[in-house]
Design a protein around this nucleic acid. Structure first.
Lengths: 220, 220
DNA sequence: GCCATCTCGTATAGGGCGATACAGCCCGGA
DNA sequence: TCCGGGCTGTATCGCCCTATACGAGATGGC
């Protein structure tokens, strides 16, 4: 179990198959590490189904600071929001590893939907799932408590990237305190302190550099 | 200019027409004030296009506290997220005024899309727009500064519900400090103080109980 | 007209977070 | 092997937010 980098997002197998089945409507593209899939502000009808690699989705504030929304690994969809509503991209997507993806274009989609309505349903499921994840993040970010914000991230990572462990669930994703800080809108120091506190509260543990979420008798 | 209650959300005319055109696939329903359109946790394939009234969308935290996501007025869509992804509702929707809406059911949607692919495209635009709004809210909620959080809400309200005024834009929506507090995740006192500070900074003004966003020479 | 309720303004005390700085650790490269 | 950089753990300090409380003004019911 090396420190493999994974994303922060996953969709279920059935949905992945549905989308893969319609891959012929898009074209395969490769992105070198540090290349941009798309940039905040541009208008585009393209969206991506990631096959390999890792893509970081972030929003840049007016003052230049960055809010990392997600890390999208294989078998995830990104960029579909702005591709469908036709407004400027609200986020940027950068390949942080060499990445392969299928690029779809929404401009011909209506006609494709006529012959393949199930593809429309699949895409609606994708956008709905994203809406859900973002709304739930909102619920927790609405709290000003760093502990809430951080536990939300950890729980989300657990659902997607944890493996069973005698004491609970072990996150195979490796994230630094710094990354947690930018994803939760707190400072790096506070992340360190909060994780420390969670350890004292016996809610988490650190095993070989990975975070272990302990089985909790009382629900959070 | 009475204190008319309006929502916090609006979609463009073209999209409204597109959806109205397919109203026959749903059925008209009425909800009395305080009735629930749907409740957090339930599984349902129904979603709503509000025609009249006002619906409050909120998420309840484990400790019982409420985060108000949106106030949906006429010509808005709600509930489509959980209706399409098939997972339990992550939010509740309560009519806070007598409300009329068209209730759609996603279970037969794939077949409808075959004959009306443009309806699928419209719905994708709706979900995409929602994703956008929530993501942008996330960007601001990621900040712990109350001023960021509150200005974000005001700016959003401005785009949707402001009228021109010699000095800037006047919000016709009336919101109490308390409501702003629950929507931005701060305390009522802080809202009062922050609005005070914004007034001193000459960024806003209060006119007849309504908030006026002053024309700003330098963009925020 | 009177009182209850809601909203807004303001004060105080306490705590926790941000900024900053620094030390120890691990790991990879020269 | 040694060095440098990134990551983690702490410490200090100042500031601002939360909780709480109270009063004034507006509003609405009776």
């Amino acid at each position: 179990m090396t420190k493999k980098k994974l994303g922060t997002w996953r969709i279920d197998r059935q949905l992945v198959e549905q989308i893969s089945r319609h891959a012929a409507f898009g074209r395969r593209r490769k992105f070198k590490k540090n290349a941009m899939l798309y940039e905040q502000g541009e208008v585009s009808t393209r969206f991506y189904f990631v096959l390999k690699g890792l893509v970081q989705i972030s929003i840049f504030r007016a003052d230049g600071s960055e809010v990392v929304l997600e890390l999208m690994g294989p078998e995830t969809v990104c960029g579909e929001g702005s591709a469908f509503d036709g407004l400027p991209r609200f986020s940027s997507a950068a390949a942080i590893e060499d990445t392969e993806a299928i690029e779809f274009d929404t401009s011909k989609m209506t006609e494709i939907f006529r012959a393949h309505p199930e593809f429309a349903t699949s895409l609606l499921r994708v956008t709905s799932l994203k809406q859900r994840v973002v709304a739930i993040r909102l619920k927790h970010l609405a709290s000003r408590e760093p502990q809430d914000r951080i536990m939300e991230l950890l729980t989300r990572l657990e659902e997607m990237f944890a493996i069973d462990h005698p004491k609970g669930r072990l996150l195979v994703t490796h994230v630094t305190h710094e990354q947690i800080a930018t994803m939760t809108g707190t400072s790096r120091v506070t992340v360190t302190r909060t994780l420390q506190r969670l350890r004292e509260q016996n809610r988490i543990d650190i095993v070989d550099g990975h975070i272990l979420l302990k089985r909790r008798p009382n629900t959070s």
